Simulated scan of single mutants.
Amino acid sequence: MKLALVVCGVAGALRRPALRVRPPPKRERLGEAMVTRTTGGGEERAARYRTAVLFGALVTQKVAADTLTGWTRARTTYSGATVSMLSEIAKFPVLALAICAFGGGWRRVKPTIQAALTDRPMATGWIAGAYAAQNVLYFAALSYISAASYQVLSQSKLLFTAVLAVTVLREPLSLRQWGALLTLLVGSLLVQVSEMAGGVYLEGGRAALYGGFLTVLGALLSALPNVWYEKLLKTEGEDEWVRNVQVTCWIFLWIAASQIWHALRAGARPFASFARFGAALFGGTGLDGITPAVWLVVGLKALNGILIPATLKYAGNLVYLYAKPTSIVATAFLVSLYTHTLPSPAFALGAALVIASMLAFSQKNKTVPAEDDH
Rank of each mutant, 00 (worst) to 15 (best):
residue 11 A to S: 11
residue 11 A to N: 03
residue 13 A to M: 01
residue 23 P to C: 02
residue 26 K to A: 14
residue 26 K to T: 12
residue 32 E to D: 15
residue 34 M to T: 10
residue 36 T to W: 15
residue 38 T to Y: 14
residue 40 G to C: 12
residue 41 G to F: 07
residue 45 R to P: 03
residue 46 A to C: 02
residue 48 R to G: 05
residue 57 A to V: 08
residue 59 V to W: 00
residue 63 V to Q: 03
residue 66 D to C: 14
residue 67 T to C: 03
residue 71 W to M: 09
residue 75 R to S: 11
residue 80 G to M: 11
residue 80 G to D: 09
residue 81 A to H: 09
residue 87 S to G: 01
residue 89 I to K: 01
residue 90 A to H: 00
residue 93 P to W: 02
residue 99 I to D: 10
residue 99 I to A: 12
residue 99 I to V: 15
residue 105 G to W: 06
residue 109 V to L: 13
residue 109 V to K: 03
residue 110 K to R: 15
residue 116 A to Q: 13
residue 129 G to Y: 00
residue 130 A to D: 12
residue 134 Q to K: 11
residue 137 L to T: 10
residue 139 F to E: 05
residue 139 F to N: 05
residue 140 A to Y: 10
residue 144 Y to A: 15
residue 146 S to N: 14
residue 147 A to W: 04
residue 148 A to K: 14
residue 150 Y to H: 14
residue 151 Q to G: 11
residue 152 V to K: 06
residue 156 S to A: 05
residue 158 L to M: 15
residue 161 T to S: 13
residue 162 A to E: 02
residue 166 V to A: 07
residue 175 L to H: 10
residue 179 G to R: 06
residue 181 L to Y: 01
residue 184 L to A: 00
residue 185 L to H: 07
residue 185 L to W: 13
residue 189 L to P: 07
residue 190 L to Q: 09
residue 192 Q to N: 08
residue 193 V to K: 12
residue 197 A to N: 13
residue 197 A to M: 08
residue 204 G to M: 09
residue 204 G to V: 05
residue 206 R to V: 13
residue 208 A to N: 12
residue 213 F to V: 05
residue 214 L to Y: 04
residue 214 L to Q: 10
residue 218 G to H: 03
residue 219 A to Q: 01
residue 222 S to D: 02
residue 227 V to T: 10
residue 233 L to H: 09
residue 233 L to Q: 13
residue 237 G to P: 08
residue 241 W to I: 00
residue 246 Q to G: 03
residue 247 V to K: 02
residue 253 L to A: 13
residue 253 L to P: 04
residue 265 R to V: 04
residue 267 G to A: 02
residue 271 F to M: 11
residue 276 R to S: 01
residue 280 A to G: 11
residue 280 A to D: 05
residue 285 T to G: 06
residue 290 I to R: 03
residue 299 G to R: 08
residue 302 A to I: 06
residue 304 N to M: 13
residue 308 I to R: 05
residue 310 A to S: 12
residue 312 L to N: 02
residue 316 G to D: 08
residue 319 V to N: 05
residue 322 Y to R: 14
residue 323 A to R: 09
residue 324 K to E: 11
residue 326 T to K: 04
residue 326 T to G: 09
residue 326 T to H: 04
residue 328 I to A: 14
residue 329 V to I: 14
residue 332 A to D: 05
residue 332 A to H: 06
residue 349 L to A: 15
residue 350 G to H: 10
residue 353 L to G: 04
residue 357 S to G: 03
residue 373 D to T: 11
residue 373 D to P: 04
